[in-house]
């Protein structure tokens, strides 16, 4: 087996089906979308009548106009990404640290936090729809407070936050479980050694546990950022029809309601590039940090 796996040709044969499949369902559609995004606004079905407009669709996306809301949609997705990174992930980390350090009912809490992840986003959205439309107004009435004009889901100042909240809540459990798994895999002798050296809960978390699960934090950060840029289902259900307040929603409306296939393809390509750019950025950021840590470590060793 070892001899087979050391042969590059054998590896190529084993990997080939996956590479072909991946190329067919991911690479080729991306390339095709890029090609469509360079065409004029003519339905893709009559492609023979289309003409190359090169990057006009990309320029149009970011040209200020009264009804061009794509820059606003991108800004909204960045706000959601910031909330995911600075609120959702720290909260998930906090819960995972509490659970991993052993509390009574650890497994029950772990499962309860994970339940929203296994429920379909559609169900979650409908659940929150009822919260916003029935429960929250009832609470406001009891407290004699004024609801925002048109309700939380139709008020322009509250609607985006009302949409972000269910998604943030839903995936806390997902990140929590990933971090919890990583925390549990830290060798017990390291934890014991730190305890012997007098490290308490906070110091243990900051100096031992969090640095040791850094690769998993990077994974969570990537998932969280990419998920933010692609957010679609919850706002689609919760907000009014044909709204374009997030990039994925805008792309869908341009494609299927407005029939601007080329323009929608340009928006799709923007989402792809945005996800790629942030993934690369994240890799660079963590690589640099890894580099700094290892250099420091080497210096300490040589000293």
């Amino acid at each position: 087996m070892k001899r087979v796996l050391s042969n590059k040709w054998s590896i190529a044969v084993f990997v080939l089906p996956t590479v072909l499949f991946f190329t067919y369902i991911v690479i080729i559609p991306i390339c095709k979308s890029f090609y469509y995004s360079l065409l004029s606004e003519i339905p893709a079905k009559v492609g023979d009548q289309s003409e190359f407009v090169w990057f006009d669709n990309y320029i149009k996306m970011f040209t200020p106009g009264r009804r061009n809301d794509f820059p606003g949609a991108v800004l909204n997705s960045l706000k959601y990404a910031a909330l995911s990174v600075f609120v959702q992930l720290p909260f998930s980390l906090l819960i995972s640290l509490i659970l991993a350090n052993g509390i009574k009912g650890e497994s029950l809490y772990r499962n309860v936090f994970f339940i929203p992840v296994v429920i379909s986003s559609v169900v979650i959205s409908l659940l929150w729809q009822r919260i916003y439309k029935d429960l929250v107004p009832a609470i406001y009435e009891i407290l004699s407070l004024d609801l925002p004009k048109n309700g939380f889901l139709a008020n322009k100042d509250t609607k985006m936050m009302a949409v972000f909240l269910p998604s943030l809540w839903q995936f806390v459990g997902y990140h929590m479980l990933l971090m919890y798994g990583a925390l549990k895999s830290i060798p017990t002798d390291i934890i014991e050694a730190a305890t012997v050296d007098g490290a308490g809960g906070v110091r243990m978390a900051l100096r031992i546990q969090i640095p040791m699960i850094k690769p998993m934090l990077k994974v969570c950060l990537s998932f969280s950022l990419i998920g933010s840029f692609k957010l679609f289902d919850t706002p689609w259900i919760l907000l009014e029809r044909a709204n374009k307040q997030l990039p994925a929603l805008s792309m869908y409306v341009e494609m299927f309601s407005n029939h601007k296939y080329s323009y929608a393809s340009a928006q799709a390509m923007f989402i792809v590039f945005e996800c790629l750019a942030f993934t690369v950025l994240l890799n660079m950021l963590f690589k640099d940090r890894d580099g700094i840590v290892s250099k420091k470590g080497r210096r300490r060793l040589s000293a």
């Binding site: 916003y132 439309k133 609801l147 004009k149 048109n150 309700g151 939380f152 889901l153 139709a154 009014e240």
Partner: peptide, 11 residues
């Protein structure tokens, strides 16, 4: 209704 903008037709 005050929340007419957030109601679907069925609701």
């Amino acid at each position: 209704p005050e929340d007419a903008a957030s109601l679907t037709r069925d609701e």
